[in-house]
Write a protein that binds this DNA or RNA. Structure first.
Ligand code: FES
Ligand code: FES
Lengths: 145, 145
DNA sequence: AAAATAAAAGACTAAAAACTCTTTTATTTC
DNA sequence: GAAATAAAAGAGTTTTTAGTCTTTTATTTT
């Protein structure tokens, strides 16, 4: 709705990996897929991409897996979204005009502008690792059952 | 981004028809397509659907076309969005959890809730016909050039 | 009543997004 | 250094969304 399916999975996976790899551990792709309830090979592709972009880290071989280093932990969810879906959720016109502009605004421009701003603030102020505690305590969830 | 392409076209078309049919005139499908810069046959399908749902009116034959009667003019853009895209933009979880709930919220639930609320208020308080003047004055636009 | 007009309906095709499967490469353990 | 492990890479398929084309039906004008 706001994001592509790919992006939804990406956000959930990153939050999951941040939580599970907090103590320096690594998480296998199978565990990630199970942990966020996503297709295994699909999330694998997504994580490959995020890894190439340095938003998460990975290592091959036994005891390998995905993890999030201290540097990457400082990234925000806005960085993930931009990497996967681009900036349309922050800059695009809600009515589908090719460019959103102040000089040729659509009838709902001001409303959309506010909504996009709210989205940006929410995602930019959310660092990748900040949900660990809430998840651990069962106060928030990244999959259903 | 917020809506499907179909829904973006639908909103723009409805606003366009409301403007053009203000004095009781009717608008042909070709004029609509040109007026909002959309594929002619595609918007035709969409308008057929909106017409069946009574959100707009149409009449066949010479001097026929689409128009918006007084009753339909009272509808809001939220009605259009609901008809085309359902209620996911008002109720769906931003991270793709199957249901958004207070008891099992995703880590960004509160933020998304606010954003969705803002969206709902914006669309529910915008009646179909209220943009005519602004469009006529060239203060807002529903197509680029 | 015939011709013209315009939407409705139906059956397509094309492109994009979502998802799957197989092979390769890197790393570690024994 | 062979076997095992785990991600990377590549090449698909499936499903959904977007868009097109053709035929039919309703209405009006002449
Ligand atoms: S022009 Fe539509 S949101 Fe700015
Ligand atoms: S659970 Fe995700 S928005 Fe409510």
């Amino acid at each position: 709705m706001f994001f592509s399916k790919t992006c939804e999975y990406a956000i959930r996976a990153v939050i999951f990996i941040a939580q599970k790899s907090e103590g320096g551990k690594k998480v296998g792709i199978r565990e990630v897929a199970a942990g966020i309830d996503s297709p295994e090979h699909f999330i694998a592709k997504i994580l490959q991409d995020l890894s190439k972009r340095q938003l998460i880290q990975s290592s091959k071989g036994p005891n390998g897996g995905f993890y999030i280093g201290d540097a990457s932990r400082r990234h925000t969810l806005a960085d993930i979204v931009s990497a996967v879906d681009g900036d349309k959720v922050f800059k695009g016109c809600g009515l589908g005009l090719k460019i959103c502009s102040e000089t040729k605004p659509c009838p709902l421009h001001n409303q959309f502008k506010e909504i996009r701003k709210k989205m940006q603030v929410a995602l930019q102020s959310a660092t990748i690792g900040e949900f660990n505690e809430s998840l651990n305590l069962g106060l928030s969830y990244i999959k259903e059952r």
